[in-house]
Design a protein around this nucleic acid. Sequence first.
DNA 1: GTTGAGCGTT
Length: 300
Amino acid sequence: MSHFGRSGPPDITDTYSLLVLNITFRTTADDLFPLFDKYGKVVDIFIPKDRRTGDSRGFAFVRYKYADEAQKAVDRLDGRVVDGREITVQFAKYGPNAERIQKGRIIESFPRSRSRSPHRRQRDDHYRDRDYRRRSRSRSYDRYERDRYRGKDRDSRRRSRSRSASPVHSKGRGRGRYDDDRRSSSRSRSVSPARRSPTPQKSPSLRKASPPRGESADRRSRDGRSPSPRSVSPRGQPADRRSRDGRSLSPRNGSAMGGLQVLEVFHREDGLLIHGARLLETWRLMNYLTDGIGMPRDLA
DNA sequence: GTTGAGCGTT
């Protein structure tokens, strides 16, 4: 919403957009207008709001009709203290639809697909990010996180405040109500890297679910009917894990162990221990019923 | 009641 009663994005043609950063969360378009209007014809002022709470996100877009006036505003107002905060005024670089703009003018439609990975997400995903993941640690922290690798300066800045950005401490002060959103969305991304420790350890509970040692693996798998690892999970890491288990395995029972490994991966990657255990039992039951192998005492 | 890097509304 603009300051001028319009709704929705106003005519972005022939206007020059300034991005005004660091304004107070209480600063409104009405506060900004007199300041900026001093330097030219302000066509529109837009302060992005948090969609849920309606709070200001702490920055604004001021649209000028003429480029030279916009430039003058940048010169005069950049660094100026407004409401006790030193604001930053610069020409906007990206339009409402992610167009690349220069000096407030749109010059390009999809800049991000230009020099980045081809599957760079686009606007729909941007919206999803914003609504569900944003404003957790601090309002607009990690929106577009993965779309913003472009600038080194951005990276360093992000690092420097990563202490407060750590998802683990949702810390008492504020924004607790968004923790659920944050967790649910960040889990899918962050769990597997976190689990990927240099020395992966099986959880004891899963060990418990493993078949007894006395019964050799090759017997269990001799029919070759053991579940295909690849059909269950793409992430099997057969070789090293096999040796780490300390079990000597022939190529044939390797596939059987593959089944076991996949179950473990399930457990480790997704935390589905109970599922893994059940799958394991099912798998053993199947072997028992078809070949008479396996230990029924375990199933009783 | 808080917050603080950033680029966009119906």
